[in-house]
Design a protein around this nucleic acid. Structure first.
Length: 445
RNA sequence: UCCUCGGUAGCUCAAUUGGCAGAGCGAGCGGCUGUUAACCGCUUGGUUGUAGGUUCGAGUCCUACCCGAGGAGCCA
């Protein structure tokens, strides 16, 4: 054995003899030549075995290898411009091969498979190139999220996952038995973060969140990750400024650090290069007009039906999709009708029928990736809204307290990690952006 | 909950009017010095989602159910 290295560092070892610990991803034999596609979790490289250059038993060991067999391979690193590995441009001239285990017949072949089969084998599917690339990018996105917020002076706060039923609408909450009492898995940490900002000024929560929605679409999961920054002394305009800087940083960071993975995914990176501030800001009223226009000009009766909308309705995904088609970068839609939004959102000055809410819609049909608002800071108005929505006042006592002891304008948003990963990776369905997705009707594996 | 489509070999799919259940891939064996979804030859492969019905005969037609996919609704 030589020095053990990881494939992602292969460029530092050209001309050296090194050892790789990994798995056989694929093999092609050609008589006296064998090509082993080796992966070690950090990358992929082709190992070349030429019979006349090797002891007979080593070459024979190569022939025995099955897909996903675990192997320890020693060889000389060569620069080879035509090699397609990850990173590209390197090859390993194999001199020794140790078999750790000959893998059983592996169910996932290089050919095509259906969604159900792949989801049933998710524990193995994550080894495949595109899944591997997606999940590496996910990790980078999660790191970029923390790096940007930490760099801006935000303090990470853990908010509870066990929560009392703060309001109505428990139909979308997962109920848990808490020593005989029903409690619920958190849908958001926002209300707690509104308490946290009065102690720390700028905070964020980052973790899993749970929604018992019976949604079976490519953008829904019952368990997903969300980052929720909340900022004191920040109004709606300040919120949009912050969001566009934040999201641009994440995208540019992925472009910088995960080129090889984006290439595996065949992602059009020019669409990502354009993600720099400022993002277009479209009011609900303007968006409403645009959608009416698109609907009027459409020849497709089905689309006309899907786009039917009255002022005051929240947008569905068909509306978001049509709207984002008009732009080549993320957009903000702000000023939604108050009736369609949550009780805590600050009303628009002089126009109480709309509120200081904002969604960010990703381009290329990906739709909503963030939702946020400026929060009500006036205690009397907040109480009025709680009563208007017939929410249990007692449960919000602590929340109302926040408006009594040094209340300030403040705002925040939630960004859905899986939807963001899907957009940046150019992946159709959010289920591929989480290693073990929980969706309606599937919790295995 | 509603709409649409589907369920046949380990996988992806085919099977004409109701008439012998097939192909490719995978796997196994052999061949090949530049493959990378390799290629060539041979071998291996079936409770047609479940239950019932019609029929001389059902993968195909009928009924009910189960499961999956896409979408809608729903979704701070």
């Amino acid at each position: 054995m030589a020095q053990i290295i990881r494939i992602e560092n292969i460029a530092d070892h050209v001309g050296e003899t090194v050892t790789l610990q990994g798995w056989l991803y694929r093999k092609t034999g050609k008589g006296k030549l064998q090509f082993l596609q080796i992966r070690d979790g950090s990358g992929q490289i082709q190992g070349v075995m030429f019979k006349p250059n090797l002891p007979e038993e080593i070459f024979a060991a190569g022939k025995r290898l099955t897909q996903e067999s675990s192997i320890i391979v020693t060889g000389t690193v060569k620069a080879e411009p035509r090699a397609k590995g990850i990173p590209a441009g390197y090859e390993l001239d194999v001199s020794d091969l140790e078999i750790v285990q000959i893998a059983d017949e592996y169910p996932i072949t290089p050919k095509e498979h259906g969604v159900d089969f792949l989801m049933e084998h998710r524990h193995l599917w994550i080894r495949s190139r595109k899944q591997w690339a997606t999940l590496r990018i996910r990790a980078t996105i999660m790191r970029a999220i923390r790096d940007w917020l930490d760099g801006e002076g935000y303090v990470e706060m853990s908010t509870p996952i066990f929560t009392p039923a703060a309001g109505e609408g428990t139909t979308t909450l997962f109920e848990v038995d808490y020593f005989g009492e029903p409690i619920y898995l958190a849908q958001t940490g926002q209300l707690y973060n509104e308490a946290n900002i009065f102690a720390f000024g700028k905070v964020y929560a980052f973790g899993p969140t749970f929604r018992a929605e019976k949604s079976k679409t490519r953008r829904h999961m019952t368990e997903f990750w969300m980052v929720e920054p909340e900022t004191a002394y920040q109004d709606l305009d300040g919120l949009m400024d912050m969001e566009e800087r934040f999201v641009s940083y994440i995208v540019q960071r992925v472009l910088k650090e995960r080129r090889a993975e984006l290439e595996v995914l065949e992602r059009d990176t020019s669409a990502l290069e354009r993600v720099v501030p400022p993002f277009p800001r479209v009011s609900y009223d303007e968006a409403f007009e645009k959608l009416q226009e698109i609907r009027a000009n459409s020849d497709d009766p089905e689309l006309k039906d899907l786009l039917a909308l009255e002022w005051g309705d929240d947008f569905g995904s068909p509306h978001e999709t049509e709207l984002t088609k008009l732009y080549d970068r993320p957009i903000f839609v702000y000023g939604f009708p108050t009736a369609a939004k949550a009780f805590y959102m600050e009303p628009w000055p002089g126009r109480p029928e709309v509120c200081k809410s904002v969604d960010m819609l990703a381009p290329e049909g990906y739709g909503e990736i963030t939702g946020g608002s400026e929060r009500i800071s006036d205690p009397e108005l907040l109480l009025e809204r709680i009563k208007h929505d017939k929410l249990p006042e007692a449960a919000f006592k602590w929340y109302l307290d926040l408006r009594k002891y040094g209340s300030v304008p403040h705002s925040g948003f939630g960004l859905g990690v899986e939807r963001t990963v899907a957009w940046i990776c150019g992946i159709h369905h959010v289920r591929e952006t989480n290693p073990f997705p929980r969706t309606l009707g599937r919790v295995y594996p």
